[in-house]
Amino acid sequence: MSLKAQLQDDMKSAMRTRDKERLAVIRMLMAAVKQREVDDREELADGDVLAVVEKMVKQRRDAEQQYRDANRPELADAEAAEIAVLENYLPTQLSEAEIDQAIENAIAESQAESMRDMGKVMGVLKPRLQGQADMAVVSQRLKARLQ
């Protein structure tokens, strides 16, 4: 089942169970997917839908941190609840050891030797790890490894 079809089914399920919070998050996600489809003038594949979900999770995490810094726990908790719903659509996250192994494999595959080769290695890693790891963390770990 495609990710969009799963979203549709989950939206119907949330409507039936009258789960307003979950329904609102799924509708927001569906709207973001639809907006991206309209902007790009093409049907999104699962990888593209996954990228939309990742972007929304990242936005919510940033907002949650800002609310916590501003001493607004009620708003931070609302963002955390949205993150919990959105994370259901992401694949399981890789451990640090699995990320390090993927980095080592990509370095060997691209024959990277220095920081100049970071772009090549990231080009190999991004499609493999999309949705399974925060690419900012992967980039930091790769940078540390190449230095």
Rank of each mutant, 00 (worst) to 15 (best):
A112E: 08
N71Y: 04
V25D: 02
V85T: 09
E54C: 15
M28I: 02
Q93M: 08
L142P: 01
P127C: 13
E113M: 14
D77L: 13
L146W: 06
S2D: 15
E42D: 02
K4A: 10
A106P: 03
A136G: 04
S13C: 10
V124R: 12
I83E: 12
I103C: 12
V138L: 10
V85I: 14
Q65R: 12
E74M: 12
A76K: 07
L50A: 03
I107F: 12
E79M: 15
Q101S: 06
V38T: 04
A144N: 14
A102Y: 02
A112G: 14
V57G: 06
S110L: 15
S110Q: 15
G47C: 07
R36S: 08
E79H: 06
K20S: 08
Q93W: 02
V53Q: 02
R145E: 09
L129G: 00
N88M: 10
E42F: 00
S139C: 00
R36W: 04
V57T: 06
M1C: 02
E21F: 14
Y67T: 01
D62Q: 05
K55C: 05
K126S: 11
Q147S: 11
Q147V: 09
R116E: 15
V33F: 01
S114V: 14
A112S: 08
E96M: 11
A45W: 02
L125G: 09
V52M: 03
A5D: 14
K55N: 12
Q140L: 07
K58V: 03
R18K: 10
I83H: 01
L129F: 04
A102I: 07
R61F: 04
R68W: 09
E87A: 12
L3P: 09
P127M: 08
I83F: 00
Q111E: 13
R60W: 00
S139G: 01
K58I: 06
V121M: 14
M122F: 08
S114W: 09
G123T: 04
M56V: 03
L146C: 08
V52A: 02
A14P: 08
L125D: 10
E74G: 03
Y89P: 15
R18I: 06
M115V: 15
A32C: 03
S2V: 02
R61P: 00
E37R: 04
L142D: 02
D77H: 02
R41E: 04
E43G: 01
A51V: 05
V25R: 05
V52C: 05
M1T: 09
T17V: 09
A24V: 01
L142V: 01
A45C: 05
A112T: 10
N88G: 07
Q130G: 05
L86S: 10
S110F: 09
D77G: 13
M30T: 04
V121G: 09
E79Y: 03
Q132H: 15
S13M: 12
K55H: 12
M56Q: 09
Q65V: 01
E87P: 13
R22M: 06
A76E: 11
G119T: 12
D48I: 00
D48Y: 00
G123N: 10
L86H: 07
R22E: 13
D19L: 08
S114I: 11
G119H: 10
Q132G: 13
V137E: 11
A81E: 13
A108R: 15
G119R: 14
Q140K: 13
D134V: 14
L7R: 09
L142M: 00
D9M: 11
Q66N: 08
M28D: 13
A45L: 05
D40R: 11
D39G: 02
V25M: 06
Q6F: 08
M1W: 03
A5S: 11
D10H: 15
N105P: 05
